[in-house]
């Protein structure tokens, strides 16, 4: 555990510039969107969604974190440490995942503040004082659940695929870029192909959720979004597992 924490802290510091830029960008966009909230919702409010798109970039940060050890030739040091190689990979995954969580928390806090203020504005216009009449009705739990599930469903499979791609990159003697692209395409195809059968299987075990969708409040809908999130977690775990095994077995200086 100590070795993992040491590697994690090292990686956190190694990527501090990227992390700082992403966090400042997230904060900046959120504050900009928040200050645009006037009497009428402004188009700049859409910017609050942008930090969630970082889910698309974080897997590449993982690949960069690994390949930068090779480009800086620090892989001689890291591979000579008395730790299993998969632990090195896992520490990098953990840093990227932590950053993803912080971006999610930061963005969603602002999103909820904006949602609350918009609801208050619409309530004032409506004049009835009944927040349930307001559509879209966005209470706190809905904002956090929906954004969390969408973000997780987007980020986790990509992170798993990036992990597997990192493993394939260390295994490939040539055409590393092409093999990375190949893993991403194959991974995306596999994710789509397995989604229906696995979500159905999970449904048999866990059942569906009764969920009030924010757009149509009051209509309880049977939803499988939590199953999609579970499937994404499983898919990510599979990707991390494949990456870890390949890393352990094939990585060398």
């Amino acid at each position: 555990m100590n070795d993992f924490i040491t590697l994690y802290m090292k990686e956190l510091r190694a990527q501090r510039m990227v992390i700082g830029v992403l966090l400042l960008g997230t904060l900046g966009l959120s504050i900009y969107a928040l200050t645009g909230l006037g009497d009428v919702p402004q188009p700049r409010l859409a910017l609050i969604i942008l930090p969630y798109a970082s889910a698309l970039g974080l897997p590449f940060l993982l690949i960069h974190a690994i390949s930068s050890e090779w480009s800086a030739q620090t892989h001689y040091q890291i591979l000579a440490l008395p730790v299993p190689r998969w632990l090195v990979l896992l520490s990098k995954v953990a840093v990227v995942l932590s950053l993803g969580v912080v971006i999610y928390l930061c963005s969603t806090v602002f999103l909820q503040v904006i949602a609350d203020r918009m609801t208050a504005m619409m309530l004032a216009q409506d004049g009835s004082g009944d927040s349930f009449r307001i559509e879209p009705h966005m209470d706190g739990s809905t904002v956090w659940a929906v954004s969390g599930i969408v973000y997780g469903v987007l980020l986790l499979p990509l992170l798993g695929i990036a992990c597997a791609a990192s493993g394939v990159r260390v295994m490939a003697q040539r055409f590393k870029g092409l093999s990375t692209l190949g893993v991403f395409v194959a991974g995306a195809y596999l994710y789509g192909k397995l989604q229906i059968p696995i979500v159905h299987a999970l449904e048999k075990i866990f059942g569906k959720w009764e969920l009030d969708l924010p757009i149509h409040h009051g209509t309880a809908t049977a939803s499988d979004v939590h199953l999609l999130l579970m499937y994404s977690v499983l898919f990510a775990a599979l990707g991390v597992g494949v990456g870890a095994v390949l890393f352990e077995k094939y990585v060398e200086a």
Partner: peptide, 14 residues
Amino acid sequence: RRMSAYLPEIDSFY
């Protein structure tokens, strides 16, 4: 690796 100190020819420091 726990009992070996390896210093490569290449600078591998951070």
